[in-house]
């Protein structure tokens, strides 16, 4: 990546920019820079895509048997059936 000072500054604020947490003047500065810097535009686009991708990951399910064993380990077996899905 072309390591200009401006690119480095932009990099530090990118997450705030993508999350909508950056101040208006910071957003404007980033957008001006992106219009002129192809490398940074690619970084922003692929970073934004990375964030979108991991937000679509399905959360791992806890197996029912693990929950049953947890209730047993905590001496709460009598409630296990009550909460079984």
């Amino acid at each position: 990546m072309a390591e200009t000072q401006r690119c480095t500054h932009l990099l530090a604020d990118l997450s705030d920019y993508l999350d909508g947490d950056a101040a208006a003047e910071v957003c404007a500065a980033i957008e001006r820079h992106l219009a002129a810097c192809e490398d940074c535009r690619v970084v922003v686009d692929t970073l934004s895509k990375t964030v979108a991708l991991y937000h679509t990951l399905p959360p791992p399910d806890m197996p029912d048997a693990a929950q049953t064993r947890l209730f047993a380990a905590l001496n709460l077996d009598e409630f296990s059936r009550l909460y079984r899905q």
Binding site: P59, P60, M62, Q67, L74, L76, E78, F79, Y83
Partner: peptide, 22 residues
């Protein structure tokens, strides 16, 4: 109160499991 403990487990175990697995 064991019923309250069970309710806590039911409510929070999936999140604790996900964190530990990740």
């Amino acid at each position: 109160d064991k019923a309250a403990c069970a309710a806590c487990v039911e409510l929070h175990a999936p999140a604790v499991y996900r964190l530990a697995l990740r």
